[in-house]
Simulated scan of single mutants.
Amino acid sequence: MTISAEESFLQANLSSSYIYFPEIAALAAVDLINKNPSILPGITITVKRFSDCGPWYPAALETYFGASGGWAASLMFQDIYENNPDVIGVIGNEYSTTTLAIAEELSLVEIPYCSATSASPRLSDKKKYPYFWRTITALGIGDHICQVLLTWNVQRVAIIYQRDDDMGAQS
């Protein structure tokens, strides 16, 4: 069996799949929202990409372990806040070590930030991270998601989940 470059890029044990699959879900959601005029009438969502570890390089697949943060996150924040004033929300998929810095900075300027994978309990401190929320079901964040949906006056919701890992088995 021959594996294509795309398939080899998405090996489940590498950081690439950790980043790729939540991004595909976010892009699919944006596409569905933009195609349905009854969800956000007259609004088109655009996606911009920012990096907390510089430009992508192939060796990152084997060597990146989530240790960026601090200075790199501050540079990313500066790029978002100073150079992209049209950004009104951020969906991130960093390790918790990186999320801690960017979540605090984005909260200071009241830009909502959602992470698909950051599980550090420190991120639950709403005094320090009031604009941060996450979609990890086992953390009991249903109240946060419910509040966002109520604020946006969302009438219908679909939930997709899996139960084949430690986090999913707890939900």
Rank of each mutant, 00 (worst) to 15 (best):
N83Q: 14
N83Y: 09
N83H: 13
N84I: 04
P85F: 04
P85W: 06
D86V: 02
D86F: 02
D86T: 09
V87C: 03
V87S: 01
I88F: 05
I88E: 10
G89Y: 05
G89D: 07
I91D: 09
I91W: 12
N93R: 06
N93H: 12
E94V: 06
E94Q: 15
E94S: 12
Y95G: 00
Y95V: 08
T97W: 02
T98L: 02
T98M: 06
T99R: 03
T99V: 07
L100C: 02
L100W: 02
A101G: 11
A101K: 10
I102F: 01
I102K: 01
I102M: 04
A103G: 05
E104S: 11
E105Q: 15
E105S: 14
S107L: 05
L108C: 06
V109A: 03
E110S: 10
E110R: 09
E110V: 02
I111L: 04
I111C: 01
I111D: 00
P112C: 03
C114Y: 11
C114G: 06
C114A: 13
C114H: 06
S115E: 05
S115I: 05
A116E: 10
A116L: 12
A116D: 07
T117E: 08
T117N: 13
S118Q: 03
S118G: 04
S118E: 01
A119H: 00
A119P: 00
S120P: 03
S120H: 03
P121F: 08
P121T: 13
R122M: 12
R122Y: 11
L123A: 05
S124C: 08
S124T: 13
D125M: 04
K126S: 10
K126Y: 07
K126C: 05
K126V: 10
K127F: 11
K127R: 13
K128E: 08
Y129V: 05
Y129F: 15
P130H: 04
F132W: 13
F132D: 02
F132I: 05
W133K: 01
W133H: 09
W133Y: 14
W133D: 09
R134C: 06
R134Q: 12
T135N: 05
I136R: 00
T137D: 10
A138D: 14
L139C: 02
L139G: 07
G140H: 07
G140T: 06
I141H: 12
Q147T: 12
Q147S: 15
V148P: 01
V148S: 07
L149Q: 11
L150G: 04
L150I: 08
T151S: 11
T151F: 07
T151Y: 08
W152P: 00
W152D: 02
N153A: 12
R156Y: 15
R156Q: 15
I159K: 10
I159N: 11
Y161V: 13
Q162N: 14
Q162Y: 12
D165M: 00
M167C: 06
